[in-house]
Simulated assay, not measured.
Amino acid sequence: MTLISPSGTLIGGEVLAALSYALFCTSLEPADHPDDNAVRAAVLHTIGSDVNRSCLLQVAQEAGDHPLRYLERISWCRQTVLLTFYRTAMNCVPSARAA
């Protein structure tokens, strides 16, 4: 999968995975119905903090201990990241708005 960053640069699935894992490690929940600003702030805080170092370990631990809960949460994280970052990027690319 390829995304378009706000600057118009194509970014790959690794970025989507990293952003999704970062969201996974936050306290945001689907029931909170976080808006785009809350999602961006939480993801960027996780990426820019010491929490980032243990994030992958937390994701792996949850996947091993609670696979169904992990699948549900990572699916929500991935969808939320796509909607938040992809929609924002598409609104910044003039040719994409016309499509």
Results as ranks from 00 to 15, higher is better:
3 L>I: 08
3 L>F: 13
4 I>N: 01
5 S>K: 01
6 P>L: 01
7 S>E: 05
7 S>C: 04
9 T>P: 03
9 T>D: 12
9 T>F: 07
10 L>F: 10
10 L>M: 08
11 I>E: 07
13 G>E: 13
13 G>Y: 06
13 G>P: 06
14 E>C: 12
14 E>T: 14
15 V>W: 12
16 L>S: 13
16 L>I: 12
16 L>D: 12
17 A>C: 08
18 A>G: 02
19 L>Y: 06
19 L>D: 03
20 S>M: 00
20 S>G: 02
20 S>P: 00
21 Y>T: 11
22 A>G: 04
23 L>E: 01
23 L>V: 00
23 L>F: 02
25 C>F: 07
25 C>R: 08
26 T>D: 07
26 T>E: 06
28 L>Q: 02
29 E>P: 02
30 P>L: 05
30 P>W: 03
30 P>R: 06
30 P>F: 02
30 P>C: 08
33 H>A: 15
33 H>P: 03
34 P>V: 01
34 P>R: 03
35 D>C: 09
35 D>E: 15
36 D>K: 06
37 N>Q: 12
37 N>V: 15
38 A>F: 04
38 A>Q: 14
38 A>K: 13
39 V>Q: 07
39 V>P: 05
44 L>S: 11
44 L>N: 14
45 H>W: 10
46 T>K: 08
46 T>M: 13
47 I>A: 11
50 D>Q: 14
51 V>A: 15
52 N>S: 15
52 N>L: 10
52 N>Q: 13
53 R>W: 07
54 S>T: 15
54 S>R: 12
57 L>I: 13
59 V>I: 09
59 V>F: 04
59 V>S: 07
60 A>D: 14
61 Q>N: 14
62 E>C: 15
64 G>V: 09
65 D>Y: 09
65 D>Q: 15
66 H>V: 07
67 P>R: 07
68 L>M: 11
68 L>H: 10
68 L>Y: 10
68 L>T: 14
68 L>V: 13
69 R>D: 12
70 Y>V: 07
70 Y>L: 08
71 L>N: 14
73 R>Q: 11
74 I>Y: 04
74 I>P: 03
75 S>D: 06
76 W>Q: 01
77 C>P: 04
78 R>D: 06
78 R>N: 07
79 Q>P: 05
80 T>W: 01
81 V>P: 03
82 L>V: 14
83 L>S: 14
83 L>N: 14
87 R>E: 14
87 R>M: 12
88 T>V: 11
89 A>C: 00
89 A>K: 00
90 M>L: 14
91 N>E: 15
92 C>L: 09
92 C>P: 00
93 V>C: 12
93 V>P: 03
93 V>F: 09
97 R>F: 04
98 A>E: 12
99 A>D: 06
99 A>K: 05
